[in-house]
Design a protein around this nucleic acid. Structure first.
Length: 227
DNA sequence: ACATTAAATTCGA
DNA sequence: TCGAATTTAATGT
């Protein structure tokens, strides 16, 4: 294909590949724009792509018939998701939705499998990715069982700054308070209260449709001292 | 739940 | 094409 896709160059795993595999990805991948609220893939569809976030924010979620939903995870710029369903060649088990306007890198499933079969460094990256995500889900369950609500909000925000899964999250998150509520399973009003407290502690500052993280380490440790 | 305020959209010159 | 007016969505309490 005629693609060049310089967007791939900002990903460490891509830079670690040999030239031949890099060329395959440049030729076979696709950069596509999604409007805020648009579905990237729907639950039940075949898993045709491994999905990378070049800019914007997407979330993994399920919805029931009357529109209520549960969000599992948010993926900011620099993050990748969907490898689980691609690996197993199964139907997607959740919806992938653009939280705001996003530009995404789509790697076809066949290419993903070929890289797995041929590239040792790609294998290492995927294993690390799966391991980190597993750790993240365990941490999420632990947070929900053990932490108070303010600390859950702090953790949910801090998780978007995971250095390996999401290496290029900027310190200003464009994320509505309602979306944080979706991510945490907490009401919007309660999120607002928690954000106010975190701001008072100097861990974050609040702007319109955005949160600036001032003290990431403080956020990570907020409320977990008792564990 | 309600009041406030930012953003988006419509409408009129 | 600009900007005021209205509608819609996010926020604060």
């Amino acid at each position: 294909m005629e693609h060049d896709l310089p967007e791939l160059d900002s990903h460490d795993w891509f830079l670690a590949l040999d030239a031949g595999h890099q060329a395959l990805l440049r030729a076979g991948s696709e950069l596509r724009q999604f409007e805020a609220g648009a579905y990237v893939t729907r639950r039940g569809e075949p898993s045709q792509h491994w999905i990378g976030v070049h800019a914007g924010l997407i979330k993994l979620a399920v919805y029931n018939a009357d529109g209520r939903g549960a969000t599992f995870s948010g993926v900011p710029a620099g993050g990748w998701c969907g490898e689980g369903s691609v690996l197993k060649r199964e139907l997607r088990r959740y919806d992938v939705v653009a939280v705001r306007a996003s530009s995404l890198l789509l790697v076809p499933a066949e290419l993903f499998h070929r890289l797995l079969a041929e590239s040792l460094s790609f294998n290492a990256y995927v294993i690390r990715q799966l391991n980190e995500r597993m750790g993240q889900f365990i941490a999420t369950i632990q947070n929900q069982r053990l932490l108070d609500v303010d600390a859950q909000v702090a953790q949910a925000i801090a998780q978007l700054f995971h250095p390996m899964l999401y290496p290029r999250t900027s310190s200003v998150l464009a994320l509505s308070q309602e979306e944080i509520g979706m991510l945490t399973g907490i009401s919007r009003q309660r999120v607002n209260l928690a954000l106010g407290r975190l701001a008072e502690l100097g861990l974050i500052s609040i702007a319109w449709q955005a949160i600036r993280v001032v003290d990431l380490d403080g956020l990570r440790h907020y409320g977990v001292a008792s564990l």
